[in-house]
């Protein structure tokens, strides 16, 4: 699924903003997630205490470049992440604006080119723009992570038609909805649409009970995927009786 790594669990969790490392650990366990993302830009080399706790979780770590605003910053952070975590996976985030936290597509492609050429397996945080997606594939990315909505906004899938087009346009590329998911129903909706996985952080970390919310999301992601595999019925404009008309008792005969 992701650069040759198959995952049983299709929920990926961010590790920021939890009330405590213990609650984070419990949320990871409750969700059954196999991949967690970790930021480095702000914490720097001094974040070892927290990172050791994350390493102990047994999850595969996907370091991210959250907080980077230029290709150069992102590349440097990715290189540091690979040293710190001993992985060539990197969630590439290059922020274009501090208010919307939307990706800077130009710097994103530039950084992706450099990192892919350097042997990194890049998970780019992108928009639903198809051409941008193609440029990222061309740069060497084998996974795309379109946003559902701006980071931390909890708005769900803001451009459903655009995301459907993206799914159709990249049938063989693993697509992860990254950012903007606020409720399990939104995660289930994305999975029903055929997305491969969901990455989220705030909706779980800032829930009043993060552990219970992690489990709720995990179930929703499972349900959505199962529904997609089972084949959803088409939407119809008119009613169609589910009870057959023929064979009914003819009471007045």
């Amino acid at each position: 699924m992701f650069y040759g790594t198959e995952l049983k669990n299709r929920l990926l969790l961010g590790t920021a903003q939890y009330p405590s490392p213990d609650i984070l650990r419990a949320a990871i366990a409750a969700s059954g997630t196999e991949v967690i993302t970790v930021s480095l830009r702000r914490e720097g080399a001094g974040g070892a205490g927290f990172r050791d706790i994350l390493k102990d979780s047994g999850c595969r770590i996907l370091p991210n470049t959250a907080g980077c605003h230029s290709a150069r910053e992102a590349v440097t952070t990715a290189q540091m992440a690979s040293e710190v975590f001993g992985t060539n996976w990197i969630k590439l985030e290059v922020i274009g604006h501090a208010d919307t936290l939307q990706p800077d597509p130009f710097a994103l492609v530039e950084a992706a080119r450099i990192l892919c050429a350097d042997g990194f397996e890049v998970f780019p945080y992108t928009t639903e723009d198809l051409i941008l997606g193609e440029k990222l594939i061309e740069a060497g990315c084998r996974v795309l992570m379109p946003w559902g909505a701006p980071i931390g906004s909890g708005q769900g899938l803001r451009n459903i038609e655009g995301l459907k087009s993206m799914r159709a346009h990249f049938p063989d590329v693993p697509l992860v909805i990254d950012a903007g998911i606020g409720a399990p129903s939104q995660a289930a909706q994305a999975m029903e649409m055929g997305f491969d996985a969901i990455l989220l952080n705030t909706a779980v970390a800032k829930a009043l009970d993060p552990v219970a919310m992690a489990e709720a999301f995990s179930r929703a992601v499972d349900a959505g995927r199962q529904a997609y595999d089972a084949g959803l019925m088409p939407r119809r404009d008119m009613a169609e009786a589910s009870t057959p008309v023929f064979g009914m008792a003819e009471l007045l005969a």
Binding site: R42, E43, G44, A45, G46, G47, A48, G49, F50
Partner: peptide, 9 residues
Amino acid sequence: ATMVESSRS
């Protein structure tokens, strides 16, 4: 006050 998971002082 900020809260950063870092031991950089």
